[in-house]
Design a protein around this nucleic acid. Structure first.
Lengths: 345, 345
DNA sequence: ACGTTTTGCTAAAACGTTTCGGCACCCTTC
DNA sequence: GAAGGGTGCCGAAACGTTTTAGCAAAACGT
């Protein structure tokens, strides 16, 4: 079991009959070093035959670069969203030959501090600090002197880079889809918490309506908990009105799922009687509903990839330009939007 | 930006007026070394004041232990299931002071080989090799000489440790719940793929029925794709029979979601007319449905934790006992099971 | 044939730890 | 007052690399 990587550079050197410096230069293709092609090939052959794998710890120690970055999630790893961000980040880092060490703090500051200490000890070159939902947040003091990028969170301090979804554009796309189908009485079931996503999607909703010249009926804008039953309750209220909306834009796919239930109970067909657009493109929910839910994707993968790219830039470039980005998510069209039919028709 | 961890053990030694050996011994509480309490305290104080963080790479090099393990997922990171396993593993490793490096191979063997190489280079002490769904699978040859534990997969070769869910027990628990409520005509909507989970859950279904002395009607056992629409289609067929079942056990929560839809369309109430039990306890699906779905949890977190523990054992113990475990998942009771009422009543 | 350049390689230092053996010194003990 | 044992610390080697400076031999120019 403990045989892995037992052969060191000096074994290769001995077998090839050269010095370890030569082996190092040959294997690393050092431009400044002059090595005859024959020697180089011999070294390569020996290294391959012996199964030589350079010791990353020794390399890291000597080069003063560990080749690793840390990924810290608050409670992030408990949510399906985490995977997209992790995947995107990991993909980008892999291309750069960097490994990713995963941590999650469960929202416990003391634990988080210990984790940062462990990462610092392993000399990670930077930190991806991820939130599970779009919010405002300041990275802990322990990260002050490390290259850090915030994922799905915005910071007040301008020196730290971050990436979040473009909520306004997402909401505009969603409402635009409904408007394009001819809907005019469009309701918005917002999240009733005071978070950036709620504020910004409302702004996008209003902007889209205004641009289309459609007045917003305040009675059709409601807040509820962003859960299935939150959506269910709100939808029951809204869909029983005489002047009910022909379409509903929901803050989340979960709320939309509740809307489906409510609609069915009220004898309303989706999408014939009421069109629905969700938000999140939650795996197995948005595509699991019948009919499939048209929704706005949260660009988790892209945010992860962008954050990793920015982190790599911070690590290599000394000036360390902080950047702040809002990434658009695609509208994913499925079967929950149709042309409205006259109410009571 | 690049200030992190600049201070080394020799800085501490110089400031404290002792040798680096003494600093090392003092900070590591080496039993064999004799250091006066006063000196030790002084060293501690200096280390704290200077913000000394030992260099993990140098430690790893010298101790011949990197303090890291790798986690390789096939396509695992794309699924919500991954997070539970990752979390469980990470938690256990954290307690042992071990970091976890995350990789995912997307099912591409060439990529996987490169990733293993990278992990080997960083001298990880072992590998957690995770599958996204319970299946048979052999770890790649490149892992032959490394401490490896399979997660959510069984291997044919007895030397490799693995952990999978106890599917038979899970199915028995699910069907037992229905039987306990008085159901006798119980249908099973199985996955029509030929995978261990399908075979074993069918076995569990039969075993539970047999134990209760209830004959299995073959017409009530069906296979379908484990998706929402798969469940929907199968349920429509089965629930329109004159001798329809009063309860349905579904291979997955997604299928159960389709069953909800079908039942509602057929004017059947859940759970009054038809009781439903799912499998997976899929986040935001099982608890998002109305009524909440009673289902069997897949013990992802526990499997991750067990695998990490076993890996730690393999790493430390030279004999390296391979172990194979089937972990039970809890039955999670929500609102989708009730006492049956007479059909047509 | 003799300096000069180029080629092909090596020695040694350095990265930051841990650990082993040993060296002073002090305190007992007789 | 010398032998003996404990106490408190230190020096140096080793872990496996990379990199810089430099050296011998070969090739080149005249």
């Amino acid at each position: 079991m403990r045989a892995a990587g037992r052969v060191s550079i000096s074994d290769v050197a001995a077998d090839a009959g050269v010095s370890i410096s030569t082996v190092s230069a040959a294997l690393n293709d050092v431009g400044s070093a002059r090595i005859s092609p024959r020697t180089r090939d011999r070294i390569r052959e020996v290294a391959g035959r012996l199964g030589y794998v350079p010791n990353g710890l020794a390399q890291g120690l000597r080069r003063q670069r560990s080749g690793m970055v840390g990924f810290i999630g608050d409670e992030v790893a408990t949510t399906p969203y985490a995977v997209g961000m992790i995947l995107g980040a990991q993909e980008t880092l892999r291309a750069a030959g960097i490994l990713m060490v995963l941590m999650n703090s469960q929202g416990d500051p003391a634990l988080e501090a210990r984790e940062i200490e462990a990462l610092r000890q392993q000399r990670v070159e930077g930190i991806l600090y991820a939130s599970m939902y779009h919010r405002r947040l300041e990275p802990p003091a322990a990260l002050r002197d490390m290259a850090t990028v915030l994922l799905d969170a915005e910071s007040r301090v301008p020196e730290v880079s971050w990436v979040v979804p473009d909520e306004v554009a997402g909401a505009r796309a969603a409402v635009g889809e409904l408007l394009a189908h001819g809907h005019r009485r469009i309701g918005f079931l917002n999240n009733d918490e005071d978070i950036p996503a709620a504020r910004l999607r409302l702004r996008g909703f209003r902007a889209a309506m205004k641009q289309a010249g459609v007045a917003v009926d305040p009675a059709l804008v409601g807040g509820a908990p962003p859960t299935t039953s939150g959506g269910y309750d709100a939808a029951r209220r809204m869909l029983q009105r005489a002047d009910r909306p022909t379409a509903l834009f929901c803050f989340s796919d979960l709320m939309a799922m509740g809307v489906y239930q409510a609609a069915r109970e009220l004898g309303l067909d989706v999408p014939a009687d009421v069109s629905i657009v969700g938000y999140d493109n939650m795996p197995h929910v948005a595509d699991g509903l019948l009919p499939g839910l048209t929704t706005v994707e949260l660009p988790h993968y892209e945010m992860g990839a962008w954050a990793a790219g920015q982190l790599l830039a911070l690590i290599s470039a000394e000036p360390g330009q902080a950047r702040h980005v809002r990434l658009r998510g695609q509208l994913v069209r499925r079967g929950s939007v149709a042309v409205p039919r006259p109410i009571g028709g």
